[in-house]
Design a protein around this nucleic acid. Structure first.
Lengths: 227, 227
DNA sequence: GTCTATAGTAGGATAGAC
DNA sequence: GTCTATCCTACTATAGAC
């Protein structure tokens, strides 16, 4: 009865459309290909069964290597997770701090761009993003602190975009902290259900959520006309 | 290096304010007290380290029992998780299908009540809810199917409430599926960050999110006045 | 840089005393 | 119904051949 119940074959993992995303493009191209495919395999395994529910064997078997192969390229299983976390969080941050976003003057367009990019990133990389969002507690405390720092920097973009819109009168005087959290929740929670083979492309969902987010900060309708 | 890094003492777990919630009130009062305290301990452990990151020893030590004590009350570790999942999902469903909600005629008040109750439930039981939301894949496929059924029934209340408001003209003709998912995301994602010792009580957060949700289905403002 | 083999340990579950 | 002791498997990580 001590047998793990949710064992799986390589094919099952690779065929599951819920585990299809673009995480393979996350890794530094200068790294050896084996290393990158191990990371991609690890992402799928961690997303499906969690860090503790995944064995180093699972990761290796996923790319057709022996159980020992992982330790040629990584110091430990935790290092693999940390590598994934670093890449994912750096890319998510990069998505919202591009010049194309920072150069936008209008507060509503700026917030909309941040939301749509952050959302689209999570959708396009939803498998890796699931690992990044849900496996933080498996990191060593040093690695955890490093990732938290990246998360704070990302969250600040949301917070600042809302604050700025309120200051210039574009947005209603909402509770910035609570509203920001709500917007982040929309963009993040999609990793639980999004599929690339669904009806919305990452960009379409991004646009949709940007529109929703703007409704949250819109000035309330004026009941007796404003014209 | 094979040593688990995130080991913890009983005191650390009990003292962590991020792990304080009202999950102890979830269990059927007719069950023996030991059983209930094992479930409460398991909730804390699963929430902190995940199902696979938790040992049966952790759960027992959390209530001062020997490693073997768990098997007097439960068939297996997975059964413990399933018990938690059943209780949590039943209670969350009960929160939205109370007569006090079903009797509401006005579509906006009805949707608001559903959102605020569902949100407040997740906030008040955020530790148990985290387990219910994030550990589904650790269930056997039979148990998983049973929980999925409860989740569908819950989601239908949201879907119906939005559909109904559109039909009677209370709401704008939004994309029901996408908007419903967004609302569920708001209520569910809070389990990642909510703390009972924060600034919002579960009910306050519920009211706030109900108001946000209604903004998502509001008729767009009429630019040239409607009076 | 990959393999096979294995060391060493942790963890699910059970046996049997009290 | 709780304990101590333990079975046995599975896991991380390493050793050493090719």
């Amino acid at each position: 009865m001590a047998k793990r119940q949710a064992r799986f074959t390589v094919e099952e993992l690779a065929d599951d459309p819920r585990l299809h995303d673009d995480s393979a493009d996350l890794w530094d191209q200068e790294r050896p290909e084996v290393m990158r495919s191990l990371l991609t395999s690890a992402v799928r395994c961690f997303a499906k069964n969690g860090y503790h529910g995944t064995t180093t064997r699972d990761i290796c078997v996923g790319v057709g290597l022996s159980p020992a192969a992982l330790y040629v390229h990584f110091d430990s299983k935790e290092t693999v997770l940390f590598d994934i976390m670093l890449a994912g969080h750096h890319r998510a941050l990069a998505a919202v701090q591009e010049p194309a976003v920072l150069d936008i003057d209008r507060s509503d367009e700026r917030l909309g761009a941040i939301i749509s990019r952050y959302t689209a990133w999570h959708a396009r990389h939803h498998v890796a993003a699931r690992v990044c969002q849900f496996e933080l507690s498996a990191l060593t405390s040093e690695h955890y602190a490093e990732i938290l720092e990246l998360r704070h920097r990302t969250n600040e973009f949301f917070h600042d975009a809302v604050t700025r819109g309120i200051a210039d009168g574009s947005f209603a005087p909402v509770d910035v902290k609570r509203v920001t959290r709500a917007m982040l929740s929309l963009s993040i929670d999609l990793v639980r259900w999004y599929r690339l083979d669904g009806t919305d492309s990452p960009e379409q969902l991004g646009e949709f959520y940007a529109a929703l987010a703007l409704k949250l900060v819109e000035h309330p309708p004026v009941l007796h006309g404003d014209g």
